[in-house]
């Protein structure tokens, strides 16, 4: 008891390490801290959405309705009344600091939260 590490000790240490690694994994970059999708529309104001909740957001803009689909912790503009559809072409965003802007319709969406690298690296 006072001079040797026992098998039970090793089992306990193993369990603790496993628990620690499990919790680290489950609270990783996409974990509870979570990212928020902030959508600002010049016409209808600001909407903040939890990126981990799948949803279809319909945002009223200057020209009409922009549809933003949130799925699998990523967001994308799927339809927009603007002439060139650059925002739809931008595709999915999911990392902190990424954004999509639709200038004609006056809608900007950006991801905030704990970043993968920093606020600058895309």
């Amino acid at each position: 008891m006072l001079s040797k590490v026992t098998a039970a000790d090793l089992v306990v240490i193993g369990l603790l390490v496993a628990l620690g690694i499990f919790l680290l994994g489950s609270a990783g970059p996409d974990g509870a801290g979570g990212r928020l999708l902030t959508v600002k529309s010049l016409k209808s104001g600001i909407l903040i959405h939890d990126l981990s909740q799948d949803a279809q957001l319909e945002i009223e803009g200057a020209l009409g309705t922009t549809v933003i689909v949130v799925e699998g912790k990523q967001a994308a503009f799927t339809s927009s009344p603007c002439p060139h559809k650059l925002c739809v072409g931008k595709g999915k965003i999911g990392r902190a600091g990424e954004w999509v802007l639709c200038l004609p319709n006056g809608v900007i969406a950006e991801i905030s939260g704990e970043g993968d690298y920093d606020g600058i690296t895309p």
């Binding site: 603790l16 390490v17 620690g20 919790l23 680290l24 609270a27 801290g33």
Partner: peptide
């Protein structure tokens, strides 16, 4: 609580 959940795993490993 969000920050705490992120810290918990690391603190358990560190403690072990």
């Amino acid at each position: 609580a969000g920050v705490a959940r992120g810290l918990m795993g690391g603190f358990i490993l560190l403690g072990a």
